[in-house]
Design a protein around this nucleic acid. Structure first.
Lengths: 244, 244
DNA sequence: CGCAAGTTTGAATGGCCTCAATTTATGTGG
DNA sequence: CCACATAAATTGAGGCCATTCAAACTTGCG
């Protein structure tokens, strides 16, 4: 690999968090035709109801997935970090049931579904790795339901921050210095709380030494405190072993 | 089909809610070796942490999927009705991250994962149908997060009842006369409310004519009222068209 | 008939929300 | 580099939805 590292390497590494891929598989994956897409802060990536012909991999920046009630209340369903496939479920559901939006300026790789499906057939291990990644996502969705349904504001916010930090760490980000890419409004919409209460709870968490503020952003350098407050059990992330 | 209808026909019909399967596909599917499993009211079907070698299809009765916090609070993640594949995600995640329990006396068909994987390779349309069903499940998980996070108790309970009723209807149950298979405690754990408040909210819903009580059980014969209260938008169920 | 499970009701408390206003970043153009 | 506009964060006061605690009632069943 003396040449310029391919952008899709990020996806390969992400898949390898949960699956074993041969070097040949990875080579085939990164040779897929892809297009770079830039999206600025807050712009839409996918809109609910869209018929999608492409799948996106987040390369830089952060994005989130959300859905709204008839009353206009927004629930954030997922926060994506670089390397994450953000809408590969559209391989199976041609109509988007959620919207995707950039949390920060983003760069994404867009891959045609046809090319992807062809590769998944030709290289079944890649197909399985992609579906496995989607199953891990589903486990995370369920944990969010538990989080919002059963934990109080303190533990709920701590759990969210904990998850994001651990996922960043898993993808080799320096979590102690990577700020959480969420505003307090967004934390509110991800946890089912109001921004006002999020603000007060964050203040309390800072008082406990669970988080710090650097230039208006939240960082979580001492994960252990946060873990304790959240009652965090990482099993749902399935990070322990490949093929689980 | 003059012979005794195979039990796995229920699974085939369920898959056909979202996917197009040829008769040859269905024939191959129902010829899978399977074993009948009976589980009585409240007994465990799968325990979190289990390494699973089989997948289950619910044939009769009702079951639910749940997870617990460290404090022992339970969140119900899904309610399953006859025909539903209840743990096919274990095809991709060898360790169960949730527990499954019978809501009522249940009959399930157990299929070995090896046999299932073999069939999915031999008949790709079946493989795709199974993964598509899992993706619809994931969409439902996300809707539950929205439900618990954004709706008040009234709409939240109405939404839960609405979903179960519509899913029963989709699988040709007589929803107007099929009682909701949940106790008030279970509704509480599915919605993130307390049993006491569920009881009071149900009383209010009955007052609105949204639900009725027959022999201690809840039935929802007039779905429209429930839909209105829930702000129910069925798109997330992907029932409109096959292959979506 | 008596236990067990589930339902129902009351009273009091509290966690989180609502409304409203102020302060602090962030960014832009002159 | 400052003035201004905009987005985000912060703080206060009051109120309500849902909770907690406790007890009584109903129903199904061995």
């Amino acid at each position: 690999m003396a040449e310029e590292p391919n952008q899709l390497t990020a996806l390969a590494n992400r898949l390898r968090l949960h699956s074993v891929l041969s070097n040949a598989d990875v080579d085939a994956l990164v040779r897929l035709p892809w297009a770079l897409i830039a999206r600025s802060h807050n712009s839409q990536i996918v809109r609910e109801g869209d018929a999608t012909k492409h799948c996106m991999v987040l390369l830089k920046g952060f994005a989130h997935r959300f859905r709204m009630t008839i009353n206009g209340d927004r629930q954030i369903m997922a926060v994506y970090v670089p390397g994450d496939p953000v809408d590969f479920d559209h391989l199976y559901l041609p109509t988007a049931d959620d919207s995707l939006q950039a949390l920060r300026d983003c760069v994404l790789a867009s891959v045609s579904q046809d090319a992807l499906r062809e590769l998944m057939i030709k290289r079944p291990m890649i197909g399985e790795a992609i579906v496995r990644a989607l199953m891990v996502d589903a486990s995370i969705f369920r944990e969010w339901t538990l989080n919002v349904g059963q934990r109080d504001a303190r533990a709920r916010i701590a759990h969210l921050l904990c998850e994001i930090t651990i996922r960043l760490e898993a993808q080799r980000f320096d979590f102690a210095n990577t700020p959480i890419p969420l505003t307090q409004d967004q934390i509110a919409d991800a946890t089912g709380l109001t921004p006002v209460h999020v603000n007060r709870t964050l203040k309390a968490l800072k008082g406990d030494g669970a988080i710090e503020r650097r230039g208006g952003l939240i960082v979580a350098p001492n994960l252990d405190v946060l873990r304790e407050i959240a009652g965090f059990d990482p099993r749902y992330l399935h990070l322990g072993s490949s093929n689980a």
